[in-house]
Design a binder for these strands. Structure first.
Lengths: 196, 196
DNA sequence: GGAAGAATTCAACAACGGTTGACTTCTGCT
DNA sequence: AGCAGAAGTCAACCGTTGTTGAATTCTTCC
Protein backbone atom coordinates (compact mmCIF):
# COMPACT_ATOMS: atom_id res chain seq x y z
CA UNK A 1 0.00 0.00 0.00
CA UNK A 2 1.21 3.43 -0.80
CA UNK A 3 3.22 5.12 1.94
CA UNK A 4 2.02 8.27 3.59
CA UNK A 5 3.86 11.39 2.46
CA UNK A 6 6.18 12.83 5.06
CA UNK A 7 5.97 16.24 6.63
CA UNK A 8 3.07 18.47 7.39
CA UNK A 9 -0.17 17.83 5.58
CA UNK A 10 -1.56 20.63 3.46
CA UNK A 11 -4.51 22.63 4.73
CA UNK A 12 -5.91 22.94 8.21
CA UNK A 13 -6.56 19.76 10.11
CA UNK A 14 -7.91 19.10 13.55
CA UNK A 15 -5.69 16.11 14.05
CA UNK A 16 -5.49 16.44 17.81
CA UNK A 17 -9.27 16.25 18.01
CA UNK A 18 -9.34 13.22 15.76
CA UNK A 19 -6.79 11.51 17.99
CA UNK A 20 -8.90 12.35 21.04
CA UNK A 21 -12.05 11.03 19.40
CA UNK A 22 -10.30 7.80 18.46
CA UNK A 23 -8.90 7.52 21.98
CA UNK A 24 -12.31 8.00 23.57
CA UNK A 25 -13.92 5.40 21.38
CA UNK A 26 -11.22 2.78 21.89
CA UNK A 27 -10.82 3.35 25.63
CA UNK A 28 -14.61 2.97 26.01
CA UNK A 29 -14.66 -0.16 23.88
CA UNK A 30 -11.52 -1.95 25.04
CA UNK A 31 -10.39 -0.36 28.29
CA UNK A 32 -7.01 1.16 29.02
CA UNK A 33 -4.78 -1.91 28.87
CA UNK A 34 -6.12 -3.28 25.63
CA UNK A 35 -6.03 0.04 23.87
CA UNK A 36 -2.64 0.74 22.29
CA UNK A 37 -1.17 3.99 21.07
CA UNK A 38 -0.73 2.33 17.71
CA UNK A 39 -4.40 1.37 17.49
CA UNK A 40 -5.49 4.91 18.36
CA UNK A 41 -3.07 6.34 15.80
CA UNK A 42 -4.32 3.93 13.15
CA UNK A 43 -7.92 4.93 13.78
CA UNK A 44 -7.02 8.62 13.69
CA UNK A 45 -5.03 7.98 10.54
CA UNK A 46 -1.78 9.36 11.93
CA UNK A 47 1.59 8.11 13.02
CA UNK A 48 1.92 6.95 16.65
CA UNK A 49 4.63 9.55 17.15
CA UNK A 50 2.09 12.28 16.60
CA UNK A 51 0.00 11.01 19.48
CA UNK A 52 2.98 11.51 21.74
CA UNK A 53 3.74 14.84 20.18
CA UNK A 54 0.31 16.17 21.11
CA UNK A 55 -0.45 14.35 24.35
CA UNK A 56 2.80 13.17 25.84
CA UNK A 57 2.28 9.84 27.50
CA UNK A 58 -0.49 7.27 27.10
CA UNK A 59 -1.56 8.20 30.60
CA UNK A 60 -1.95 11.87 29.71
CA UNK A 61 -3.88 10.92 26.59
CA UNK A 62 -6.26 8.86 28.68
CA UNK A 63 -6.83 11.74 31.09
CA UNK A 64 -7.57 14.08 28.20
CA UNK A 65 -9.88 11.52 26.58
CA UNK A 66 -12.07 10.96 29.61
CA UNK A 67 -12.30 14.58 30.69
CA UNK A 68 -15.95 15.26 31.39
CA UNK A 69 -17.60 18.18 29.61
CA UNK A 70 -20.02 18.39 32.54
CA UNK A 71 -19.44 17.72 36.21
CA UNK A 72 -21.75 14.74 36.89
CA UNK A 73 -22.18 15.90 40.48
CA UNK A 74 -24.01 18.98 39.31
CA UNK A 75 -26.91 16.84 38.17
CA UNK A 76 -27.55 16.01 41.79
CA UNK A 77 -28.38 19.51 42.90
CA UNK A 78 -31.88 20.78 43.57
CA UNK A 79 -33.60 17.43 44.08
CA UNK A 80 -37.19 17.51 45.38
CA UNK A 81 -38.03 17.08 49.08
CA UNK A 82 -40.98 14.79 48.57
CA UNK A 83 -39.77 11.28 49.47
CA UNK A 84 -41.81 9.64 46.73
CA UNK A 85 -40.44 12.02 44.13
CA UNK A 86 -36.77 11.77 45.11
CA UNK A 87 -36.20 8.26 43.83
CA UNK A 88 -37.72 8.69 40.37
CA UNK A 89 -36.05 12.08 39.93
CA UNK A 90 -32.67 10.69 40.95
CA UNK A 91 -32.94 7.78 38.53
CA UNK A 92 -34.12 10.11 35.77
CA UNK A 93 -31.13 12.38 36.26
CA UNK A 94 -28.54 9.63 36.43
CA UNK A 95 -29.94 8.05 33.28
CA UNK A 96 -30.01 11.54 31.77
CA UNK A 97 -26.27 11.81 32.26
CA UNK A 98 -25.58 8.37 30.92
CA UNK A 99 -27.87 8.66 27.94
CA UNK A 100 -25.86 11.62 26.64
CA UNK A 101 -23.50 10.00 24.13
CA UNK A 102 -20.51 12.21 24.96
CA UNK A 103 -20.86 11.47 28.66
CA UNK A 104 -21.52 7.77 28.16
CA UNK A 105 -18.41 7.29 26.08
CA UNK A 106 -16.24 8.86 28.74
CA UNK A 107 -17.91 7.09 31.62
CA UNK A 108 -17.61 3.73 29.87
CA UNK A 109 -13.98 4.57 29.18
CA UNK A 110 -13.55 5.17 32.89
CA UNK A 111 -15.35 2.04 34.01
CA UNK A 112 -13.75 -0.15 31.38
CA UNK A 113 -10.36 1.13 32.38
CA UNK A 114 -10.82 1.12 36.15
CA UNK A 115 -9.35 -2.34 36.43
CA UNK A 116 -6.21 -1.61 34.45
CA UNK A 117 -5.62 2.07 35.15
CA UNK A 118 -5.29 3.24 38.72
CA UNK A 119 -6.18 6.84 37.83
CA UNK A 120 -9.52 5.76 36.40
CA UNK A 121 -10.25 3.65 39.46
CA UNK A 122 -9.35 6.56 41.72
CA UNK A 123 -11.54 9.01 39.79
CA UNK A 124 -14.53 6.68 39.98
CA UNK A 125 -13.92 6.13 43.67
CA UNK A 126 -13.87 9.90 44.20
CA UNK A 127 -17.03 10.35 42.16
CA UNK A 128 -18.68 7.82 44.38
CA UNK A 129 -17.38 8.68 47.84
CA UNK A 130 -17.21 12.45 47.44
CA UNK A 131 -19.88 12.93 44.84
CA UNK A 132 -22.78 10.55 45.03
CA UNK A 133 -22.73 9.12 48.57
CA UNK A 134 -22.83 12.45 50.46
CA UNK A 135 -25.77 13.62 48.36
CA UNK A 136 -27.61 10.35 48.95
CA UNK A 137 -26.82 10.57 52.63
CA UNK A 138 -28.34 14.04 52.81
CA UNK A 139 -31.46 12.80 51.04
CA UNK A 140 -31.89 9.79 53.28
CA UNK A 141 -34.28 9.54 56.20
CA UNK A 142 -32.65 11.02 59.25
CA UNK A 143 -32.50 7.81 61.28
CA UNK A 144 -29.19 6.33 62.37
CA UNK A 145 -28.83 4.42 59.11
CA UNK A 146 -28.34 7.21 56.62
CA UNK A 147 -25.03 5.86 55.39
CA UNK A 148 -26.49 2.37 55.06
CA UNK A 149 -29.35 3.78 53.01
CA UNK A 150 -26.97 5.76 50.84
CA UNK A 151 -24.87 2.70 50.07
CA UNK A 152 -27.95 0.61 49.23
CA UNK A 153 -28.99 3.26 46.72
CA UNK A 154 -25.48 3.47 45.30
CA UNK A 155 -25.47 -0.30 44.83
CA UNK A 156 -28.88 -0.24 43.13
CA UNK A 157 -27.75 2.54 40.80
CA UNK A 158 -24.45 0.81 40.07
CA UNK A 159 -26.34 -2.34 39.17
CA UNK A 160 -28.65 -0.44 36.89
CA UNK A 161 -25.72 1.17 35.10
CA UNK A 162 -23.84 -2.10 34.78
CA UNK A 163 -26.97 -3.87 33.56
CA UNK A 164 -27.94 -1.25 31.00
CA UNK A 165 -24.67 0.23 29.79
CA UNK A 166 -21.82 -2.14 30.62
CA UNK A 167 -23.12 -5.70 30.39
CA UNK A 168 -26.04 -4.57 28.21
CA UNK A 169 -28.88 -6.86 29.33
CA UNK A 170 -31.26 -6.64 26.37
CA UNK A 171 -34.40 -5.27 28.01
CA UNK A 172 -32.55 -2.94 30.34
CA UNK A 173 -30.53 -1.66 27.41
CA UNK A 174 -33.43 -0.82 25.16
CA UNK A 175 -35.91 0.24 27.83
CA UNK A 176 -37.01 3.86 27.78
CA UNK A 177 -35.78 6.09 30.52
CA UNK A 178 -39.41 6.49 31.62
CA UNK A 179 -39.88 2.75 32.09
CA UNK A 180 -36.72 2.48 34.15
CA UNK A 181 -37.71 5.47 36.25
CA UNK A 182 -41.11 3.89 36.81
CA UNK A 183 -39.69 0.57 37.96
CA UNK A 184 -36.52 1.57 39.79
CA UNK A 185 -37.50 5.04 41.10
CA UNK A 186 -39.85 3.75 43.82
CA UNK A 187 -37.18 1.29 44.98
CA UNK A 188 -34.70 4.13 45.35
CA UNK A 189 -37.26 6.11 47.33
CA UNK A 190 -37.85 3.04 49.47
CA UNK A 191 -34.15 2.61 50.18
CA UNK A 192 -33.80 6.31 51.00
CA UNK A 193 -36.80 6.85 53.22
CA UNK A 194 -38.83 3.67 53.49
CA UNK A 195 -39.01 1.04 56.17
CA UNK A 196 -36.01 -1.25 55.83
CA UNK B 1 21.23 -12.58 46.30
CA UNK B 2 22.04 -16.21 46.19
CA UNK B 3 20.87 -18.06 43.09
CA UNK B 4 18.42 -20.87 43.31
CA UNK B 5 20.00 -24.32 42.95
CA UNK B 6 19.25 -25.96 39.63
CA UNK B 7 17.44 -29.20 39.12
CA UNK B 8 14.70 -30.90 41.07
CA UNK B 9 14.20 -29.93 44.66
CA UNK B 10 14.57 -32.64 47.27
CA UNK B 11 11.48 -34.04 48.95
CA UNK B 12 7.90 -33.92 47.86
CA UNK B 13 6.46 -30.57 46.94
CA UNK B 14 3.06 -29.43 45.78
CA UNK B 15 4.48 -26.82 43.50
CA UNK B 16 1.64 -26.94 41.00
CA UNK B 17 -0.82 -26.13 43.78
CA UNK B 18 1.34 -23.26 44.97
CA UNK B 19 1.42 -21.86 41.47
CA UNK B 20 -2.37 -22.16 41.25
CA UNK B 21 -2.85 -20.47 44.60
CA UNK B 22 -0.58 -17.60 43.57
CA UNK B 23 -2.41 -17.34 40.25
CA UNK B 24 -5.80 -17.18 41.95
CA UNK B 25 -4.72 -14.52 44.34
CA UNK B 26 -3.09 -12.32 41.73
CA UNK B 27 -5.83 -12.71 39.11
CA UNK B 28 -8.38 -11.72 41.77
CA UNK B 29 -6.30 -8.77 42.89
CA UNK B 30 -5.03 -7.41 39.58
CA UNK B 31 -7.08 -8.95 36.80
CA UNK B 32 -5.80 -10.93 33.85
CA UNK B 33 -3.84 -8.27 31.94
CA UNK B 34 -1.95 -6.91 34.94
CA UNK B 35 -1.04 -10.32 36.24
CA UNK B 36 2.15 -11.63 34.64
CA UNK B 37 3.52 -15.13 34.52
CA UNK B 38 6.64 -13.77 36.13
CA UNK B 39 4.73 -12.28 39.06
CA UNK B 40 2.88 -15.52 39.66
CA UNK B 41 6.13 -17.48 39.51
CA UNK B 42 7.79 -15.08 41.94
CA UNK B 43 4.94 -15.46 44.41
CA UNK B 44 5.03 -19.23 44.08
CA UNK B 45 8.80 -19.11 44.46
CA UNK B 46 9.51 -20.89 41.18
CA UNK B 47 10.91 -20.11 37.78
CA UNK B 48 8.44 -18.81 35.17
CA UNK B 49 9.36 -21.73 32.97
CA UNK B 50 7.84 -24.08 35.51
CA UNK B 51 4.53 -22.33 35.24
CA UNK B 52 4.51 -23.14 31.55
CA UNK B 53 5.72 -26.62 32.24
CA UNK B 54 2.71 -27.37 34.42
CA UNK B 55 -0.01 -25.25 32.81
CA UNK B 56 0.99 -24.49 29.26
CA UNK B 57 -0.19 -21.04 28.32
CA UNK B 58 -1.20 -18.11 30.50
CA UNK B 59 -4.72 -18.64 29.21
CA UNK B 60 -4.78 -22.24 30.37
CA UNK B 61 -3.41 -21.19 33.74
CA UNK B 62 -6.20 -18.67 34.12
CA UNK B 63 -8.83 -21.27 33.28
CA UNK B 64 -7.38 -23.63 35.86
CA UNK B 65 -7.18 -20.85 38.45
CA UNK B 66 -10.79 -19.75 38.19
CA UNK B 67 -12.29 -23.23 37.98
CA UNK B 68 -15.20 -23.30 40.42
CA UNK B 69 -15.27 -26.03 43.03
CA UNK B 70 -19.07 -25.67 43.06
CA UNK B 71 -21.42 -24.82 40.23
CA UNK B 72 -22.94 -21.50 41.34
CA UNK B 73 -26.15 -22.32 39.47
CA UNK B 74 -26.85 -25.17 41.85
CA UNK B 75 -27.46 -22.71 44.64
CA UNK B 76 -30.51 -21.52 42.77
CA UNK B 77 -32.42 -24.76 42.96
CA UNK B 78 -35.29 -25.45 45.32
CA UNK B 79 -36.25 -21.84 46.06
CA UNK B 80 -39.48 -21.30 48.01
CA UNK B 81 -42.75 -20.49 46.28
CA UNK B 82 -43.87 -17.82 48.72
CA UNK B 83 -43.28 -14.47 46.95
CA UNK B 84 -42.22 -12.78 50.16
CA UNK B 85 -39.72 -15.48 50.91
CA UNK B 86 -38.16 -15.73 47.46
CA UNK B 87 -36.30 -12.44 47.59
CA UNK B 88 -34.63 -12.89 50.97
CA UNK B 89 -33.76 -16.50 50.22
CA UNK B 90 -32.25 -15.57 46.85
CA UNK B 91 -30.13 -12.84 48.39
CA UNK B 92 -29.07 -15.17 51.21
CA UNK B 93 -27.93 -17.80 48.76
CA UNK B 94 -26.05 -15.46 46.46
CA UNK B 95 -24.25 -13.92 49.43
CA UNK B 96 -23.62 -17.44 50.70
CA UNK B 97 -21.72 -18.25 47.52
CA UNK B 98 -19.75 -15.03 47.58
CA UNK B 99 -18.91 -15.18 51.26
CA UNK B 100 -17.09 -18.48 50.75
CA UNK B 101 -13.45 -17.40 50.37
CA UNK B 102 -12.57 -19.98 47.75
CA UNK B 103 -15.53 -18.96 45.62
CA UNK B 104 -15.02 -15.26 46.15
CA UNK B 105 -11.43 -15.39 45.01
CA UNK B 106 -12.38 -17.13 41.80
CA UNK B 107 -15.37 -14.91 41.13
CA UNK B 108 -13.34 -11.79 41.74
CA UNK B 109 -10.69 -13.20 39.43
CA UNK B 110 -13.40 -13.61 36.81
CA UNK B 111 -14.89 -10.17 37.25
CA UNK B 112 -11.56 -8.43 37.48
CA UNK B 113 -10.45 -10.16 34.33
CA UNK B 114 -13.64 -9.81 32.31
CA UNK B 115 -12.42 -6.62 30.71
CA UNK B 116 -9.08 -7.99 29.59
CA UNK B 117 -9.83 -11.65 29.00
CA UNK B 118 -12.57 -12.61 26.60
CA UNK B 119 -12.95 -16.06 28.11
CA UNK B 120 -13.74 -14.58 31.52
CA UNK B 121 -16.23 -12.17 29.98
CA UNK B 122 -17.87 -15.02 28.10
CA UNK B 123 -18.09 -17.23 31.19
CA UNK B 124 -19.72 -14.44 33.20
CA UNK B 125 -22.11 -13.74 30.35
CA UNK B 126 -23.06 -17.42 30.27
CA UNK B 127 -23.50 -17.53 34.04
CA UNK B 128 -25.85 -14.61 33.71
CA UNK B 129 -27.85 -15.42 30.59
CA UNK B 130 -27.99 -19.19 30.99
CA UNK B 131 -27.71 -19.42 34.73
CA UNK B 132 -29.28 -16.62 36.65
CA UNK B 133 -31.76 -14.98 34.28
CA UNK B 134 -33.79 -18.10 33.40
CA UNK B 135 -34.15 -18.97 37.08
CA UNK B 136 -35.26 -15.42 37.87
CA UNK B 137 -37.63 -15.50 34.96
CA UNK B 138 -39.25 -18.68 36.26
CA UNK B 139 -39.62 -17.11 39.71
CA UNK B 140 -41.15 -13.91 38.39
CA UNK B 141 -44.85 -13.10 38.36
CA UNK B 142 -46.41 -14.58 35.26
CA UNK B 143 -47.43 -11.29 33.65
CA UNK B 144 -46.01 -10.23 30.29
CA UNK B 145 -42.98 -8.66 31.95
CA UNK B 146 -41.18 -11.67 33.36
CA UNK B 147 -37.96 -10.93 31.48
CA UNK B 148 -38.07 -7.30 32.58
CA UNK B 149 -38.48 -8.40 36.17
CA UNK B 150 -35.63 -10.86 35.86
CA UNK B 151 -33.29 -8.21 34.51
CA UNK B 152 -34.23 -5.76 37.27
CA UNK B 153 -33.33 -8.38 39.85
CA UNK B 154 -30.09 -9.22 38.05
CA UNK B 155 -29.18 -5.54 38.08
CA UNK B 156 -29.97 -5.21 41.77
CA UNK B 157 -27.88 -8.29 42.59
CA UNK B 158 -25.03 -7.12 40.36
CA UNK B 159 -25.01 -3.78 42.18
CA UNK B 160 -24.97 -5.49 45.54
CA UNK B 161 -22.01 -7.64 44.53
CA UNK B 162 -20.13 -4.71 43.04
CA UNK B 163 -20.85 -2.59 46.12
CA UNK B 164 -19.87 -5.23 48.66
CA UNK B 165 -17.12 -7.26 47.00
CA UNK B 166 -15.66 -5.29 44.10
CA UNK B 167 -15.75 -1.61 45.01
CA UNK B 168 -16.04 -2.42 48.72
CA UNK B 169 -18.34 0.32 50.07
CA UNK B 170 -17.56 0.27 53.79
CA UNK B 171 -20.97 -0.50 55.26
CA UNK B 172 -21.97 -2.93 52.55
CA UNK B 173 -18.65 -4.70 52.92
CA UNK B 174 -18.84 -5.23 56.64
CA UNK B 175 -22.58 -5.72 56.93
CA UNK B 176 -23.77 -9.10 58.04
CA UNK B 177 -25.45 -11.31 55.52
CA UNK B 178 -28.60 -11.08 57.64
CA UNK B 179 -28.70 -7.29 57.45
CA UNK B 180 -28.31 -7.35 53.70
CA UNK B 181 -30.97 -10.01 53.35
CA UNK B 182 -33.28 -7.92 55.50
CA UNK B 183 -32.79 -4.76 53.43
CA UNK B 184 -32.41 -6.10 49.91
CA UNK B 185 -34.54 -9.25 50.09
CA UNK B 186 -37.88 -7.46 50.07
CA UNK B 187 -36.76 -5.35 47.12
CA UNK B 188 -35.93 -8.50 45.17
CA UNK B 189 -39.36 -9.91 46.02
CA UNK B 190 -40.91 -6.66 44.91
CA UNK B 191 -39.09 -6.74 41.58
CA UNK B 192 -40.07 -10.37 41.06
CA UNK B 193 -43.72 -10.30 41.99
CA UNK B 194 -44.73 -6.83 43.17
CA UNK B 195 -46.50 -4.04 41.41
CA UNK B 196 -44.04 -2.23 39.16
C1' DG C 1 11.47 35.09 -1.08
C1' DG C 2 13.19 33.21 2.91
C1' DA C 3 13.22 31.83 7.66
C1' DA C 4 11.09 30.05 11.75
C1' DG C 5 8.08 27.11 13.73
C1' DA C 6 4.49 23.74 13.79
C1' DA C 7 2.68 19.57 12.00
C1' DT C 8 3.74 15.55 10.35
C1' DT C 9 6.30 10.68 9.36
C1' DC C 10 10.35 7.59 9.84
C1' DA C 11 13.15 4.51 12.11
C1' DA C 12 14.69 2.69 15.92
C1' DC C 13 15.32 2.04 20.94
C1' DA C 14 14.33 -0.04 25.42
C1' DA C 15 11.65 -2.65 28.23
C1' DC C 16 8.31 -5.99 29.04
C1' DG C 17 6.11 -10.38 28.91
C1' DG C 18 4.88 -14.97 27.01
C1' DT C 19 7.17 -18.80 25.64
C1' DT C 20 10.77 -22.47 24.54
C1' DG C 21 14.80 -25.62 24.26
C1' DA C 22 18.59 -27.11 26.87
C1' DC C 23 20.46 -28.46 31.01
C1' DT C 24 20.57 -30.02 35.98
C1' DT C 25 18.98 -32.52 39.99
C1' DC C 26 16.17 -35.73 42.43
C1' DT C 27 13.10 -39.80 42.90
C1' DG C 28 11.62 -44.27 42.07
C1' DC C 29 11.95 -48.50 39.78
C1' DT C 30 14.49 -52.49 38.00
C1' DA D 1 24.04 -49.24 40.91
C1' DG D 2 22.08 -47.32 37.05
C1' DC D 3 18.56 -45.54 34.22
C1' DA D 4 14.28 -43.21 32.99
C1' DG D 5 11.38 -39.74 33.88
C1' DA D 6 9.67 -35.89 36.41
C1' DA D 7 10.62 -31.63 38.63
C1' DG D 8 13.12 -28.01 38.47
C1' DT D 9 16.25 -23.56 36.59
C1' DC D 10 18.81 -21.06 32.92
C1' DA D 11 19.19 -18.28 29.09
C1' DA D 12 17.47 -16.48 25.37
C1' DC D 13 14.07 -15.73 21.70
C1' DC D 14 10.33 -13.14 19.70
C1' DG D 15 6.70 -9.96 19.36
C1' DT D 16 4.57 -6.04 21.17
C1' DT D 17 4.29 -1.53 23.00
C1' DG D 18 5.44 3.09 24.67
C1' DT D 19 8.46 6.42 23.55
C1' DT D 20 12.08 9.44 21.24
C1' DG D 21 15.30 11.96 18.11
C1' DA D 22 15.81 13.06 13.42
C1' DA D 23 14.04 14.36 9.12
C1' DT D 24 10.51 16.24 6.00
C1' DT D 25 6.76 19.26 4.57
C1' DC D 26 3.66 23.02 5.06
C1' DT D 27 2.11 27.53 6.90
C1' DT D 28 2.78 32.02 8.47
C1' DC D 29 5.25 36.12 9.21
C1' DC D 30 8.70 39.61 8.13
Amino acid sequence: MTAKPRGRRPGSNDTADQILAAARELFAERGYARTTIRAIAAQANVDPALVHHYFGTKDALFDAAVQMPVDPRQVMSGLPDDPRAIGPELVRRVLGVWDRPEMQERLRGMIGSALTHEGAAETLREMLTRGLLPVLRDLALDDDRRDWRAELVAAQMAGLIVGRYVVGLPRLRRASSADLVASVGPVVSHYLTGRL
